[in-house]
């Protein structure tokens, strides 16, 4: 190796040491745990009655890398909505939730009417969501889900990742969540199911935001 190569090796080592110095600077790190569990925050939703809570087994919590979760059922009139929220405090876990398109098929559900929609919230904002109908034997469920990145929602995991990158770069935001709602569809039309779901989301989302912000509901 000649003197030219040696000089370049020295320059390379200096560049890499500088990179190491910047890379090892302390970062914001994880968001501390919330003062209230998610399930108790969501126990009261305007106009909806909590009728059940399903605890997840330890191996499921571990498999999904959950930091907090809520698996609750609500009723209003003839409507019955099941809510699942998997919540993550650090951005490292943004890819942890399983995608419903994979999981429902893996559990033997036939999927139809798969698409996207926008639900109008009480404050006039639009919430982007993914919708589908899942059928298995005589069971037919209308499913709505989205991926949350701090206070922003996306109907798919890629959009969530992009939003979380932006949140992290601009505000140091780390939190993410996966939200899934299901409604027994029976013989009801897709439009009827959608209306019932939109009503539920209007009651749910503001309370959910208080949890993200770390405020009491």
């Amino acid at each position: 190796m000649g003197p030219l190569c040696r000089r370049r090796l020295i320059l390379l080592a200096l560049i890499l040491m500088l990179t190491a110095f910047v890379a090892h600077r302390p970062t914001a790190g994880e968001v501390p745990a919330k003062p209230f569990p998610l399930a108790s925050t969501l126990a009261r939703l305007d106009g909806w009655h909590l009728i059940g809570q399903t605890p997840l087994e330890a191996n499921v919590i571990e498999g999904l890398q959950l930091d907090d979760y809520a698996f609750l059922s609500y009723a209003r009139g003839g409507d019955l909505v099941s809510l699942y929220v998997g919540y993550y405090f650090s951005a490292d876990k943004v890819g942890a939730p399983h995608h419903p398109l994979v999981c429902f098929s893996g559990q033997g559900w036939e999927l139809s009417d798969v698409g996207h929609a926008k639900f109008r919230l009480r404050d006039g904002r639009q919430l982007p969501v993914a919708v589908m109908t899942a059928s298995r034997d005589v069971d037919r469920q209308y499913i709505v889900y989205w991926f949350q990145a701090e206070e922003e929602a996306a109907s798919g995991p890629f959009g969530q990742k992009l939003r979380l990158i932006r949140q992290r770069l601009l505000h140091g935001g780390e939190q993410s969540a996966f939200v899934r709602l299901s409604l027994p569809a029976g013989e009801r039309s897709e439009e009827e199911c959608r209306r019932a779901m939109e009503e539920f989301v209007r009651a749910f989302y503001p309370t959910f935001l208080t949890y993200i912000q770390g405020r009491p509901a």
């Binding site: 090796l9 390379l12 080592a13 890499l16 040491m17 190491a20 090892h24």
Partner: peptide, 20 residues
């Protein structure tokens, strides 16, 4: 000997820089 030490220094810096 010098070449070897320089190569080791670059290797060390490479591991350190990309450690996370």
């Amino acid at each position: 000997r010098i070449d070897l030490w320089l190569a080791l220094a670059v290797l060390f810096a490479l591991v350190l820089a990309f450690w996370p």
